[in-house]
Design a protein around this nucleic acid. Structure first.
Lengths: 329, 329
DNA sequence: CTGAAAGCGCTAACAT
DNA sequence: ATGTTAGCGCTTTCAG
C-alpha cells in the first residue's frame, strides 16, 4: 500500500502538498491539485488513519456501550446515534458489554488509549464509579440510563411520569389489582418506574401490595414468563400488569395464555419501550413509546459537542402511551 | 495523559526499556522492571494504541458487517465472534450497514486505512464485487451469506438441505399445498432455500405453483403479514407455509390469526433461524436452528488465521429442524 | 541488560 | 503557493 511519500514523489511535490490536497486546503493551485490527485489515483493510495490520528490525537471513533445487542430496545437509538455520528464525520463502535466488567474495561481502555474519542453509555449495569472517574478526563454521555448522583450529562425520558401514566390508564379502566413486573432496583429506571407506579396507586387510594411487585434481574422473555407465573400464584390474582419492559410483558403474555387466561379480559397488560415485536403479539401490546431515534441523535450530538469542549446540558425527552389491544376490553 | 517519555524519565530509564516492560520482554531485570512499573503506576500511564498501531501497522480491531442490528438472527453469531476475538486479543467493531453502499464504503475504508485488521461480512446485500476486490488485499471472511462465484472463505450451513427438510416435514404431515415466503432471490440463501423447497415438492410429486411462492425484499414482520395476505387471496389457499425467516413467519402468523384462521389446524407454519421470539408466539414456531454461536466463533477464528497469513478453508456447519406447535396438529 | 536513534504515516508551523 | 522539518507515541534494530 502506497504512502504519502510515494504519492509526493510520483506527483513531483512535497508531502506537505499532498497532505494539503487530502485535507482540502484552499491554498493549492488547481494544477498541482490535479497532479496530486492523478498520483493518488494511479497509486491507489488511501491515507492511513493511523498516521493522521496519531498526529491529530483524535480517532473520530465513538464508542457506544450497550448491555446486550439482543435487546431490541437499542435498535432505533443506535440508528439515531449512527446517523448523527456519520453526518459529523465520526464512526461508531458498538460495544456489547454483556454487563461484564471485564469487557467494559477493554472499552474504557480504548478511549484512554486514544483509539476512541468518547463514549455513549447505555448500559444500566455499567460501573458508575469507574464511569464517573473516566468522565473527568474523557467525553462521556449517558443515554436512557444515568447516574443521578453523578455529573455525566445524559439524555433520557421522565420514567416516573411515564410509569404513572401507564398505571393511571389501567386504573381508569377500572382495575384495582395492578401488579408490577420490575427489573432490578439498583437501576435508576427501575426505581423511577416503580415510583410512578406507586404514585398512581396512591393518587387513587389503592393499596401498594408487595405480593404484586415482582423483581427480575434479566429482561429476556423467559423472565417475564417466570414473573407472571409467580404473580398468578398469589392468593389474590391481579387483574392488570404493568411491566417495565416489552420483552418481559411478552413473556408474561405467553404465561397468561398458558394458564388459559385471556388478555385483556382476564388480565390487562402494559409494557414499556414499544419494540417492534410488541405489535406482533396477539393481542398487540399497550406500551410506552420512547423517542428512541431522537434519543440517539441527541446523545451523539451531545457527545460530539463535548469532544469539542463545548458545554452540554442533560436532556429529558417526551414519551407517549400507545394504547393497543392488551388494554382494550 | 502521560506518555512513554515521561514514564522513562520518571523511572530513570530509556523509552526502549519502558517499551520492553510494556511488552513483557524477558530481558529486563526485575529491578528495572519494578522501577518502570512504579513510574507507570504513579503517572497513571496508559500506552497509546495509536503509536503502537502505527508502528506495528496493526489495529487488532475486527470489523463485523451486519445489514441491520435489529435482526435478532445476528445476536448469537456476534456473541461467538466477540468471545473468540477477545480471547485472541482482538476487539470487534459492529458495523450496521443498513445495506447502504455508502456506509459500507466507510467501513471498507477503515480496513484500507489500517484502522481495522479484517472484516467478517454477514450482509447479504453487500457489494460482492467490491468485497472480492478488497479480499485480494485484506483479510475477509463471509459468514452465513457468501458469494458462490467468489474466492472469499465462508462459514455457513447447507441452506438447501435445511429447506428441503423443513418442507419434507410438512409433506410428511400430509400437506400438499405448501407455500413459500422467500426473500429476494438475488441473495444466495434465498435461491438455495427455494431449491430445497422445490426439491422436496418434486420428490413427492407435488406441483410447484408460482402462485404459492411469494418474494419480499425485506425481512421485517410487516412484510410477512403482507406476504400472507397475498397468499390467502389465492384461489386455492395453501394449507402450509414455509418462510425463509422467523420474522416473516411471525408476521404471517399474525395475518393468519387476523383472518380468524388457526395455526396449525388451518395452516401449518415453519420459519427459519430460531430467533428467541419464535418461542414466544402462540403457537410456538417450528423453525430451523442454525448453530449461530459456533458460526460466529468459526468465522472469527478463520479471520484471525487469515490475518496471520494462514490458509483457511470454508466451513459448512450442521443445522437442525426444531419442531414446535405451529406444525403439531 | 540497557540506551540511542530511526522510523511507522501524517499534519502544521515556519520558511521561502 | 509550495517545500522543509519537527514531532505525535511507540517499537525495534544496533551498539555497547
Amino acid at each position: 500500500m502506497a504512502n504519502i511519500q510515494e504519492v509526493a514523489q510520483k506527483a513531483g511535490v512535497s508531502v506537505a502538498t499532498v497532505s494539503r490536497v487530502l485535507n482540502q486546503h484552499p491554498t493549492v493551485t488547481a494544477k498541482t491539485r490535479l497532479k496530486v490527485e492523478t498520483a493518488i489515483e494511479e497509486l491507489n493510495y488511501e491515507p492511513s488513519m493511523l498516521g493522521r490520528n496519531l498526529r491529530n490525537s483524535e480517532s473520530r471513533l465513538l464508542l457506544v456501550l450497550i448491555p446486550s445487542i439482543s435487546n431490541p430496545f437499542y435498535t432505533e437509538i443506535i440508528n439515531g446515534i449512527e446517523d448523527t455520528a456519520i453526518t459529523n464525520g465520526y464512526n461508531i463502535l458498538l460495544c456489547d458489554t454483556d454487563s461484564n466488567p471485564q469487557r467494559e474495561h477493554i472499552y474504557f481502555n480504548m478511549v484512554k488509549n486514544k483509539l476512541a474519542d468518547g463514549i455513549i453509555s447505555m448500559d444500566p449495569a455499567v460501573d458508575m464509579e469507574k464511569l464517573n472517574g473516566l468522565a473527568m478526563q474523557y467525553p462521556i454521555i449517558q443515554c436512557s440510563e444515568y447516574d443521578e448522583k453523578g455529573t455525566i450529562p445524559y439524555v433520557t425520558i421522565d420514567n416516573q411520569l411515564a410509569a404513572y401514566r401507564a398505571v393511571k390508564h389501567l386504573i381508569k379502566l377500572g382495575h384495582k389489582k395492578i401488579a408490577l413486573i420490575n427489573s432490578d432496583e439498583r437501576f435508576l429506571y427501575a426505581r423511577e418506574r416503580r415510583a410512578g407506579y406507586e404514585q398512581a396507586l396512591r393518587e387513587f387510594n389503592l393499596p401498594i401490595q408487595e405480593k404484586w411487585i415482582y423483581h427480575t434481574n434479566h429482561l429476556e422473555f423467559e423472565f417475564g414468563q417466570q414473573a407472571m407465573r409467580k404473580l398468578l400464584q398469589t392468593d389474590e390474582k391481579p387483574t392488570a400488569v404493568f411491566s417495565v419492559s416489552d420483552t418481559l410483558a411478552i413473556g408474561a403474555l405467553k404465561e397468561i395464555n398458558a394458564h388459559e387466561l385471556n388478555v385483556p379480559e382476564d388480565i390487562a397488560l402494559v409494557g414499556f419501550d414499544k419494540i417492534s415485536f410488541s405489535n406482533m403479539t396477539n393481542p398487540t401490546l399497550t406500551t410506552v413509546s420512547q423517542p428512541m431515534y431522537k434519543m440517539g441523535c441527541t446523545a451523539a450530538d451531545m457527545l460530539i459537542k463535548k469532544i469539542h469542549n463545548k458545554d452540554v446540558e442533560s436532556v429529558i425527552l417526551d414519551h407517549e402511551l400507545v394504547i393497543r389491544e392488551s388494554t382494550m376490553g
